[in-house]
Computed example of a mutant assay.
Amino acid sequence: MKALLPALAVSALLAGAVSAKAQDAPPPQEDWVLTSIPERKATLALAEFTSGVTLVARCIDGAYDLFITGLPEAPARATTRDLGLSVGEDAALKTTVWTVGEDRTTAFSRLPAMVARQLAEGGELQIVAQGPDHRRYRFIMALNPSSTALEQTLTACGRPLIDPRDKDTEGDGRETLPALARWEIVPRPRFPAPVGGRSPTEGYAVLSCGAENDGRLVNCQIESEWPRGYGLGREALRSVDRARLRLNDEAAAAGRRLEDGIIVFSINFRMD
């Protein structure tokens, strides 16, 4: 996968971002700054930190993104990277998968609305990323809670400010299923028809779905997709209508049920 998810032209706001270790003492709390670009149908919220890290949440013409810039550079040719993330004083650090941007110090969330809702709660924010020297860099920052600017980006894209599905979610947008389940019938998406005579050769859509005890996926939502504008998310939704899950052996032995949570996974598209 080559140049991924080009950022909106906010280079003046993001210029000069470089990776750096966070200070030992907690820095002052930062708030989000709201920016509107009507001609692009865009609403953006930005939070910049002295560590060089910048967070951007944006709604552009109905599509929602959240990305981090100023991270240690991702390894060459990597299209995804793992970031540790926690929000709140007592929150556990959770490893999540992010898509590497065209600028390799930038990473795009595969669950942007969910992460935005976490960030809106404010408090201590920790990000852990591996650098090109194979060292782990930890950034410790502070965000003001209940950011109006961040909430406006969610509202602009029709995303809820509170979603009860978040607390029951398993998975972080990888192609593999979370440990709870395995595929009984694998989804087989088709590439949608070209748009304007063009069609991507590869891409992905991240879905969050409930499940019935018989393995059917229900109430699926598109969390993110790349590239946009080609209907990959819609095709991914169609493909899961025919797919089926089943519990893995360990989950079944532990008395787990498919319908107990929300399962997050990606469906990848590749042109043969």
Score class of each variant (00 low, 15 high):
residue 117 R to V: 03
residue 121 E to H: 11
residue 138 R to P: 08
residue 118 Q to W: 01
residue 136 R to N: 15
residue 129 A to R: 03
residue 177 L to R: 09
residue 85 L to Y: 01
residue 168 D to P: 05
residue 116 A to H: 02
residue 75 P to H: 09
residue 164 P to K: 06
residue 156 A to M: 08
residue 99 T to E: 13
residue 157 C to Q: 04
residue 110 R to I: 03
residue 107 A to R: 04
residue 139 F to V: 14
residue 157 C to S: 00
residue 143 L to Q: 05
residue 73 E to D: 09
residue 75 P to F: 08
residue 169 T to G: 08
residue 78 A to L: 12
residue 141 M to Y: 08
residue 140 I to C: 14
residue 83 L to D: 00
residue 135 R to L: 12
residue 67 F to N: 00
residue 68 I to N: 02
residue 132 P to V: 13
residue 162 I to Y: 13
residue 146 S to L: 14
residue 136 R to A: 11
residue 164 P to A: 07
residue 156 A to F: 02
residue 46 L to T: 13
residue 103 D to Y: 09
residue 46 L to F: 11
residue 115 V to K: 05
residue 114 M to P: 04
residue 95 T to H: 08
residue 125 L to A: 03
residue 106 T to A: 11
residue 148 T to N: 11
residue 53 V to N: 01
residue 132 P to W: 11
residue 150 L to I: 04
residue 165 R to H: 08
residue 82 D to V: 13
residue 150 L to Q: 01
residue 67 F to P: 00
residue 55 L to Y: 02
residue 90 D to L: 05
residue 153 T to I: 02
residue 131 G to Q: 06
residue 187 P to G: 12
residue 101 G to P: 02
residue 127 I to Q: 02
residue 81 R to C: 12
residue 97 V to H: 06
residue 154 L to E: 06
residue 165 R to E: 10
residue 119 L to A: 04
residue 83 L to T: 01
residue 83 L to K: 00
residue 173 G to M: 03
residue 67 F to T: 00
residue 107 A to P: 02
residue 85 L to K: 01
residue 133 D to C: 03
residue 97 V to Y: 01
residue 49 F to K: 00
residue 82 D to R: 07
residue 90 D to F: 03
residue 173 G to P: 01
residue 186 V to I: 15
residue 128 V to N: 09
residue 136 R to I: 10
residue 125 L to P: 01
residue 186 V to M: 14
residue 110 R to A: 05
residue 60 I to M: 10
residue 48 E to G: 12
residue 128 V to Y: 07
residue 81 R to S: 10
residue 176 T to H: 13
residue 73 E to V: 12
residue 59 C to Q: 05
residue 116 A to S: 15
residue 94 K to R: 14
residue 88 G to I: 02
residue 160 P to L: 05
residue 54 T to G: 10
residue 55 L to S: 00
residue 161 L to I: 10
residue 144 N to A: 13
residue 144 N to W: 09
residue 176 T to N: 10
residue 82 D to H: 07
residue 139 F to M: 14
residue 148 T to R: 13
residue 121 E to L: 14
residue 107 A to E: 07
residue 166 D to C: 02
residue 75 P to V: 08
residue 121 E to M: 11
residue 93 L to W: 00
residue 132 P to G: 08
residue 105 T to N: 08
residue 67 F to M: 00
residue 178 P to I: 09
residue 129 A to Q: 07
residue 179 A to C: 07
residue 179 A to F: 11
residue 71 L to M: 05
residue 181 A to K: 03
residue 47 A to P: 01
residue 73 E to G: 02
residue 137 Y to C: 07
